[in-house]
């Protein structure tokens, strides 16, 4: 029984971290219509910088400054924001799909740095050893058992998720959120009313990417490990599938989609591992990828608004 519960805690922690990423993407795509083709890059940038700042020192390895967790994660968030700002400035004035190509390129470039710059990123083996926040204190409280710490960490993730959710709800219901939707729907009309589309897009893109960076920081604290596969494109695909299934432009939908798709992904992984014949075991990954691709294409064709569609509130009627 305790095994099942600790697995559920583990599952919910990971789903919660992914839900934060999906909320960040929802601000960019759902509310502002910006295509981020490199979600994994911003998540990974946050994760790596959090690890470098807050990790333990290793011989021959840059980083390991043992910064307190809040300081380390803020560093990760700022770095993710910095990358987003740089590429936003370069591409947001151009054709709308330039952002998609540039962010896709950022993800590939960062992945190759993560794989090759061993002094900085540990190369293919990644970086491990991260002092998790309050671990010693809470494990001692639980009598040396780490179940209580798992619960604590889940609570931490859910608290961040709730804070991001509430913050985004307030932001998107405010006049600022209406301005974002206005430039998404009709840029010329928004500009004629004095809104600056390039600046609003840039702000939305940077804030969304910082949220993804925060999720990356939590991820590092959860696993006490980060490696190049955390920057792999599949994360970008998963997060996009979560958003489109839940409903772009709806924050509740974004969270729902994250939990649903993560459950489906984990369950399909278990099912394939248990049911697929020995010879097929090497190919369970591709089967899961085809499922994710089919979910994306199928939703776009048959239910592009997702499970919980965007709700446009009529002003002045309530």
């Amino acid at each position: 029984m305790i095994g099942v519960i600790s697995y559920l805690v583990f599952f919910a922690t990971m789903a919660g971290i992914l839900a934060i990423v999906v909320l960040g993407l929802n601000l960019q795509w759902g509310y502002t219509g910006l295509f981020n083709g490199g979600v994994a890059a911003f998540f990974g940038a946050g994760a790596y910088v959090t690890m470098l700042l807050g990790g333990r020192p290793e011989p021959g390895q840059f980083g390991g400054f043992l910064a307190p967790f809040p300081v380390a994660i803020v560093g990760g968030i700022l770095f993710a924001g910095l990358i987003a700002w740089f590429f936003g400035v370069l591409t947001l004035r151009l054709r709308h799909d330039y952002l998609a190509i540039a962010t896709f390129g950022v993800a590939i470039a960062l992945e190759s740095v993560a794989r090759n710059a061993e002094w900085l990123t540990g190369g293919a083996k990644g970086l491990r050893g991260f002092p998790r926040p309050l671990e010693a204190t809470i494990t001692a409280l639980g009598g040396g058992d780490n179940f209580l710490y798992g619960l604590f960490f889940l609570a931490l993730v859910l608290a961040v998720l709730a804070a991001v959710y509430v913050g985004l709800e307030r932001l998107t219901r405010s006049p600022y959120g209406r301005a974002l939707r206005a430039i998404r729907e009709d840029e010329a009309a928004a500009r004629s009313l004095g809104k600056n589309p390039v600046r609003l897009r840039l702000e939305s893109f940077v804030i969304g990417s910082m949220i993804m960076g925060a999720a990356g920081g939590l991820y590092v604290a959860f696993y006490a490990y980060v490696g190049p596969q955390d920057l792999a494109p599949i994360l970008t695909f998963q997060v996009w599938a979560m958003l489109i299934v839940g409903g772009a432009g709806n924050n509740r939908g974004a969270v729902l989609g994250a939990f649903l798709i993560w459950a489906a992904w984990t369950a399909s992984g278990f099912a394939l591992a248990a049911l697929a014949p020995q010879a097929m075991q090497l190919y369970t990954g591709p089967i899961q990828y085809i499922l994710i691709g089919s979910v994306i294409v199928g939703m776009l064709l048959w239910r592009p608004q997702g499970i919980l569609p965007e709700q446009i509130r009529q002003q002045g009627r309530n």
């Binding site: 996009w240 489109i244 990828y289 994710i292 089919s294 979910v295 994306i296 294409v297 776009l300 592009p304």
Partner: peptide
């Protein structure tokens, strides 16, 4: 819009 096609092309590539 065109960006939905960009999105769909990601899924098609994966498949």
């Amino acid at each position: 819009d065109a960006l939905s096609m960009v999105f769909a092309s990601f899924g098609v590539a994966l498949i």
